[in-house]
Design a protein around this nucleic acid. Structure first.
Lengths: 191, 191
DNA sequence: TCCTTAAAGCAACGAGTTTGCGTTAAGCGA
DNA sequence: TCGCTTAACGCAAACTCGTTGCTTTAAGGA
């Protein structure tokens, strides 16, 4: 298990979890990602290092946890009246958030301290959920929609691939082109 | 600069670089990825830890270097007579190599110790090169081919995305479906 | 209220990392 | 070929980080 939920929801444990998480976020802003160490985080959180080590194991797993928390979308995708507009707006925002320096750092952290892939899967699930909302809304309108897997393959995957492997030269126009290539094409079955 | 070339190509430096790289590969097989430490690698390579620290900085940057080296394709894509067969064979092999436990570890290492993204970009360039060879061959045959960027978006990106974020349930049939969705469709402009 | 037991604190030990300084050997020009 | 310059390596000490056994605290339940 990578995601540290269910550790005695109320009380001291919860307080420690919260203060450690905020300590990580504050220190990342103050001193930058590279300067983070477990003892430093623990000190800021008012906790002993051993507590952090016992609950998270390594700094990377802790960062992975924090990253997933920050990558969770906090709002539903906006409704612009039709599938293409909705997807375009979502893709542009997704690209914007994820391709920023901090966004890329969070993605990498999420991928990193994650031996079993749970946290990475969670990130993907977040995107799939958002896409699903958009597609369901389009179906309700009577629009012809591709399935989620196809949308993931044709929009999310290319965006994420380029963010991770070729960050140079990404822009909103590329996101729009991906969406344009998807809508108006029937779902190919995904996988 | 992440890739440590050009450090005095011949002589002691080159010997150290080579022995450290092979030490990493040997130890990864012997004791596994997790057991690696800089002092351990240095000892096996017959070198002092400080040498490794000074040249690579951290274990992750060293691993990233080794990973990129291992991810470089060592052969040209096979020629099966037509674009679709070539792409299918390549995609299946790519998926096979990359989705293995060690393949995923290499990809993650390459992404990881790589602040400026040079190593990740190199990985992507390898794939693009291979695809390019296949497409050029198809054009020489007179086949109608998509452009490289489109192929990256439609085949490589989905494969890599799922390898990294949703490793469960990937198989050769999925790779074939991606290729099938690409060929027979004109290049949409890539980006 | 008392009991049980996770979870946190403390402290000491071991391992990994960093750094200054001396030494070696490429690379290069005379 | 020789000698000079300088990057790279080796050595060793100091320091920080990570680990672990034991003690103490406090949540949750009887």
């Amino acid at each position: 298990m990578s995601s540290r939920q269910g550790v005695r929801p109320g009380g001291r444990s919860a307080r420690v979890q919260a203060s450690v998480h905020t300590a990580v976020r504050e220190l990342m802003e103050d001193r930058g990602r590279e300067a983070l160490t477990v003892p430093l985080v623990a000190q800021r959180a008012g906790v002993t290092p051993s507590t952090v080590y016992r609950r998270w194991g390594t700094l990377q797993e802790l960062l992975s946890d924090v990253a997933v928390e920050r990558l969770r979308p906090d709002t539903e995708p906006e409704d612009h009246g039709d599938l293409r507009s909705d997807l375009t707006a979502w893709a542009e925002q997704f690209l914007d958030e994820m391709s920023s320096a901090s966004g890329r750092a969070y993605i990498r952290d999420a991928l990193l301290g994650d031996p079993d892939g749970d946290n990475a899967g969670q990130c993907s699930a977040y995107a799939a959920e958002q896409i699903n909302v958009i597609l369901a809304r389009a179906r309700d309108r009577g629009e012809n929609t591709p399935d989620v897997e196809t949308a993931m393959d044709r929009v999310v995957a290319p965006l994420m691939y380029r963010i991770l492997f070729r960050p140079a030269g990404l822009d909103a126009a590329y996101a729009r082109r991906l969406v344009a290539g998807l809508v108006g094409v029937r779902g190919t079955g995904g996988r």
